[in-house]
Amino acid sequence: MNSSLKQLMKSLLAPAFPGGIITILIFYLDYLQFELVEKFLLFAAFVIVPLVILLLNHDAKNTHQRMIYGAIKWLQYPAALLTLASVMSSKMWGLESTAIPGILSLGWLLFTLLLGIYGLTTIVISKGKAAEIAIGAGLVYFFIGGIWFTLYQYQFDLFEANVATHALSSVHFHFSSAIVPIFIGALGRIMTKKSWYPWVVAIDIIGPILIAFGMIFSKPIEYIGVTLFACNIVVYTAYLLAYLKKNALDIKAAFLLGLSCLAFYTVVVISIFYPLLKNMYSLTILDFIPIYGSLHAFGFVLCGLIGWVYMVDFIKKKKIVKW
């Protein structure tokens, strides 16, 4: 038993284990009467962000970046607990009409600000490397997600958008907007130089902004942003699958990254057949949201992050390619 516990503590994924247990309770305990969107936000705070931190490189010679990295590692869990307290105060403690949920949400806002600052330092010291710029942009998008979460908890009606839109915007920036650039950046670190890659990074940075702007002000702009973003993910998944097929890699990394790509394509297929399924089974978009959310959050994002954590470790040990 002791040896098993030691192996668990030495696991690459150990930082995400406590948050993983809390997330399971959040999703399955009837006692916690949270909205689905809030459950996904807490999943991001407790599991997704710790996994992202495992993928970050920091320059040992850069004192400021090293200090920010250390602060991020130490403050992530307390910030996630404050996020949970913020949601509980508005849903369970009868404080929804007070400023308490908003005040508690400031802990996560400040933490995502740290992530954003780290992202900006990554961009500044990247010397024009597209992969590092992509990862830096993804970290900045976490901060934008933190802003939307705080607006949601304060119940502000910003830009004449309702509070539910703030929650969806926060989820959008915590998952798609932040994670896809990080995935594309991780791929850029290990792939050979391609002329099209900087364009993929540029579109990947612009896409989330168009989607967020469109969600509030203009549906056509949102559709353009979603189309560009989806096309980018197709390029990422297609190249990644080809890379996995061509190279002998860690089996866990290859399996999980392949599963992540499969989850994305499943979402695409369901989206294509949505009108037919809706008519055949009298379903509404509300019936599909949990399916889309689960496939994206647990399939594409979670499997992809764990896969990249294993991939980074494998490449560092084997020194197959320059990292």
Rank of each mutant, 00 (worst) to 15 (best):
S170M: 08
T98K: 08
F264H: 03
S260P: 00
F46P: 10
I48R: 15
N279S: 15
W308N: 11
K194N: 01
N62V: 04
W108T: 13
G214E: 06
I206G: 05
L25A: 13
I205K: 05
T98E: 08
G19R: 00
S3E: 15
E222P: 05
S170Y: 08
T23D: 12
L104E: 14
P275Y: 06
F156I: 11
M9R: 10
Q65V: 02
A137C: 08
G20T: 13
L113R: 03
S282P: 03
K129G: 00
P50K: 14
I306N: 12
L256W: 01
L244I: 04
G138M: 09
Y292C: 09
A230K: 12
P208G: 15
L8Q: 11
Q65D: 07
V267W: 11
I216H: 02
K194L: 05
H174Q: 07
A85W: 03
F288N: 05
L55A: 10
F46W: 08
Q7R: 10
F183G: 04
I209F: 14
A14N: 07
Q153G: 01
A297M: 12
G20D: 09
I72W: 03
L168M: 11
L305K: 15
T83N: 03
L249H: 08
M311F: 11
G116M: 00
M1K: 14
P290H: 11
H64T: 14
G138C: 10
T227D: 03
I147A: 00
F217I: 05
W323K: 08
L104W: 15
H172I: 01
V312D: 00
I233A: 12
S177Y: 02
I211D: 02
E222C: 00
S271G: 11
L115E: 06
I147W: 02
F273E: 12
F288T: 07
